Amino acid sequence: MTTKTEIQALLRFLTQDAKVPLPTAMGKVKELQGKHLISPEALSKTSITVIQSIFPDEKQAKAVLAAAKRVSKKRRAGEEEGPSPIKRAKHGSSLIGVEQDPASLEESLRLPNVNDYDISDETLSTIKIWTNRAPLVLAFAVVLLKHTMPSQPPSSRLSLAQAVVSVNSRSKAVSLGLAERGAGAEDEGWGMGQPSVKIMSREIKVMRRHGYDYNEADTLASEEGQMMKSEDAKQENADTQETLKQENGVSDDEPALWGLDLEALRSSKSSLVAGGQRPDGAGLPVYSAQNVRSYLLKSFASPQDKVGAESTPKKRPTAAAQRTEKERNLACLLRALDILITSWVHVLSRDELDRRAWSWYVAVRPDVKDGVAGWGGKGEVCLEQIVGLRRKG
């Protein structure tokens, strides 16, 4: 049985040496335990294929294996463990090689929509998904921000939502004794003086994207998959957004924001410099919208995908079929959340809506074991329960 100390050491290795984002690292603990890969030594002796079965992202899997071999070699040589000699790859931060203009960037971040799959709202109540809690919080935050901060582009919403997940994961890790209290980057003063916003009752440090220019009406049409091309349709979207801004007290003067990755900022040991920002945030210690989108796309399986479950199909779906199913499930989840939040947006203030969102999440999140045993655990989420929380009448 894995001890709490071993889990703490594993998380330190993944986040500090392998540069895996904390929420991702925490979500992989159970899988690593199942394969008896709870130390750098054990990881260094396994194959990249095994590691990639846990960390599907090839680049991340290679980073974990390389870090495991490096740390194991140091320990065998009797060297004192220290910071990785390789410059940190800014976990969870943008490192995109090709610069995109705002319109192209926002289009590339489009999330699946139920209209892509011809799924009716009535069908949503029959759908169940299989996931863990972190990506569900992420989906909640992304949809919530569309209503509470409508002036923010999709790239900002994704980045801000990931910041919520990271703050929440850090808090949970401390409460379970998996992370040391007061050892986080924010506790050490990183990000001090930076502006902050409150999302789902969490204070999030942000970085302003001054000068980021995009067309909100075009973005909304693309994001929601409506394929609205006429000027009338664009104007209707713009009018809707203006109404939401006025009702929720959101200022048009607020620039687009990035969710600030304080751990990346601490690792870089540099100060934030305003101006000269690339549209995708590359090179900055911020949560990458592209990475967040990729995480969402692969996080929502169907219950029959449970390994070892009686309901597992005799013939396992192909990787392509599984990807399509996960994207379809994400589209359904986002639509269910939008139905819920839209029903309350004209009744609750922005702050009330933000506070209420956390209680809605708690009401529908998957059931897992208490304490450390449930860390990263998965369970069913019934979309019927989400839709059932919508305002009646």
Rank of each mutant, 00 (worst) to 15 (best):
G191W: 14
L144N: 01
S47H: 02
V206R: 09
A321S: 08
K146Y: 09
D253S: 13
S294V: 08
N237K: 10
G92I: 01
K128Y: 01
L109F: 12
H210C: 06
T5G: 13
V372D: 01
A282Y: 13
V387Q: 09
F140I: 12
L158V: 07
A68D: 02
L124I: 05
T243W: 10
E79P: 02
Q322F: 03
L43Q: 02
S44E: 04
L257I: 06
L340F: 04
T342F: 01
R170K: 15
P317K: 05
R70T: 02
P313Q: 10
T318C: 01
C382G: 02
S267R: 08
S171G: 10
A61P: 05
L337T: 03
S299A: 14
G34D: 09
K234L: 12
L105S: 00
S196A: 15
K369F: 00
V286I: 14
L37R: 02
I86D: 06
G377P: 03
S125C: 11
S349N: 08
Y287H: 12
A61W: 03
R209T: 09
A319Q: 09
Q8H: 14
G211N: 12
P153Q: 13
D261I: 06
R133D: 01
K62L: 02
T49M: 11
M207E: 15
V273G: 11
Y361I: 02
S84C: 12
D261V: 07
G283R: 12
K19F: 05
E41L: 04
V165D: 15
S155A: 12
